[in-house]
Amino acid sequence: MWDYTAKVLDHFRNPRNVGTIRKPDGVGEVGSLACGDALKLMFRLGPDGRIAEVKFKTFGCASAIASSSALTEIIKGMTLEEAARVTNQDIAAYLGGLPEQKMHCSVMGREALEAAIENYRSGGRTRHVLEGKVVCRCFGVTEVEIERVVRENSLATVEQVTNYTKAGGGCGNCRPEIETIIARVQEELRKAGKQAPAAGRMTNLQKIRLIEETINREIRPMLQRDGGDLELIDVEGSRVVIAFRGMCARCNVAEFTMKDVVEARLREFVAEDIAVVEEKP
């Protein structure tokens, strides 16, 4: 079973604000049966311009239902300007956190809210349309959406993007493209000086030094025993780029070595949030 918080289970078992509104001011629909989750959100504004009533219907797993329910509780009573600032992290935080692989449920909530507000502002004429180029064809995820979750949640790996948006979780053909998007957004963030905060209170230099020490002490001797080696290429926030050398470069369990040895050791000795990626020649 998933490690759901008591609050997630409560909102799943007793969802708040289920249903439809007869004459809604805004309606947002995202997801589809094919994707495995879908959310229809509607709201009605009171005379004071605040959300007076909000209802939802959700097809999906326990955390999708709980995220929808949480979203309605969060935005009830808000002005649309306030509601527009609600992020997927607010939804996850309200529930006391979501398992990493279920973060896409909170993103679906935010997207439905955005679609509903857009629907209201355009006088009910427009329905939510996909914005930008579709990157993941399996789940219909666009470049704009991927950029946004990477920026808002400081994501560093394709796996994280998949957890947050599902992109890359089907046939996997778009994974290289997602990697390019991550690199671009991370670069922008670095230029803007808004880089993801380094773990603990280490400076970046201290962190790089610690990563090098850990590789020399914990990882390299193990790889060298099998005639392999690795090289540290780059460190960007929590994203560590390495390249395998010697036997490791040709090894077909290198992927396993990277996750279960390199990443695990760096997480143990440097910081919990480290994600290791391999630079391919």
């Binding site: 079973m1 289970l9 799943f12 078992r13 049966l33 495995g36 989750d37 097809f59 999906g60 797993c61 326990a62 999708a64 239902i65």
Partner: peptide, 14 residues
């Protein structure tokens, strides 16, 4: 049809 397996399993488990 029209509902999702994990939700069914959690309610069954309850």
């Amino acid at each position: 049809q029209y509902i999702e397996g994990e939700s069914i399993l959690y309610h069954l488990s309850d």
